[in-house]
């Protein structure tokens, strides 16, 4: 009974802490997907260039980030950068920086794939009407590619939300780290991790349903 009382008295404070954890998680995620989307759009369009040398240039950036663990990237930035430069970024800066670069790499691939998924006939139909390359791209290709891209982008964002939990490992107090802290203090890991589980699920489940819905809705039958 005593143990129970202790837990109850902690509950209000804990829920505030969980809220703060969610705040940090969302802050890191939203910032980095915004920056990452920007990077990804630019690199994705460069990837579509007809010139092989130009189009493969972004691969130097994209491939290492896609093919190595985010944890390693985080550690490289968090522990590595202060070693080789005079800059001492905070854990938060490191988290946003790494996640942004990481999102950018994945987003570039999505952008590139969406543009390439538009059949060649659409380009030709535009050319045949007298449009130039840029005009076809802006008026016909981008709107179609955009609809293909949206559901995939939402799915990527959900993935990045979950990946953001890795920032707990560089001791940024996000939702996951909060869960760990509280579970160690209350010695009720099952309940605490259950709560963290549920919170992540509540945020990302509706989004993933939205992605599925958009995917069905935006499908084109050419």
């Amino acid at each position: 009974m005593q143990a129970f009382e202790k837990y109850r008295s902690l509950r209000l404070l804990d829920s505030l802490q969980f809220l703060r954890g969610i705040g940090v998680t969302l802050e890191v995620t939203l910032l980095s997907i915004a920056i990452g989307t920007f990077i990804g759009i630019i690199l994705g369009i460069i990837r579509c260039s007809k010139n092989k040398a130009v189009s493969s240039l972004p691969l130097i950036y994209i491939e290492p980030l896609r093919n190595s663990p985010l944890v390693t990237q985080l550690f490289l930035v968090y522990y590595g950068i202060p070693m080789i430069t005079n800059w001492m970024p905070s854990a938060f800066t490191c988290a946003v920086l790494t996640l942004s670069l990481n999102t950018g790499a994945f987003f570039a691939v999505l952008v590139n794939n969406s543009i390439k998924a538009i059949p060649q006939g659409q380009w030709e139909a535009g050319y045949a009407l007298g449009h130039g390359k840029t005009s076809v791209f802006i008026h016909f290709i981008v709107p179609q590619a955009f609809r293909l891209l949206i559901p995939q982008a939402v799915t990527l964002y959900i993935g990045q939300l979950q990946c953001s939990s890795y920032v707990a490992l560089i001791s940024l107090i996000d939702l996951t780290k909060t869960g760990e802290t509280i579970s160690l203090r209350t010695m009720m890991p099952f309940v605490c991790w259950g709560i963290v589980f549920a919170l992540y699920f509540i945020i990302s489940f509706p989004l993933s349903k939205l992605a599925q819905y958009l995917e069905k809705k935006n499908e084109f039958a050419y």
Binding site: Q122, A125, L129, G130, P143, Q144, A221
Partner: peptide, 22 residues
């Protein structure tokens, strides 16, 4: 010249190509 040429020669393809987003 391509733009002028294409404006003067309309083209219709075997596979129908309407822009699906419009």
């Amino acid at each position: 010249n391509l733009r002028h040429i294409r404006l003067n020669c309309g083209m219709v393809f075997q596979q129908t190509v309407l822009f699906p987003h419009l």
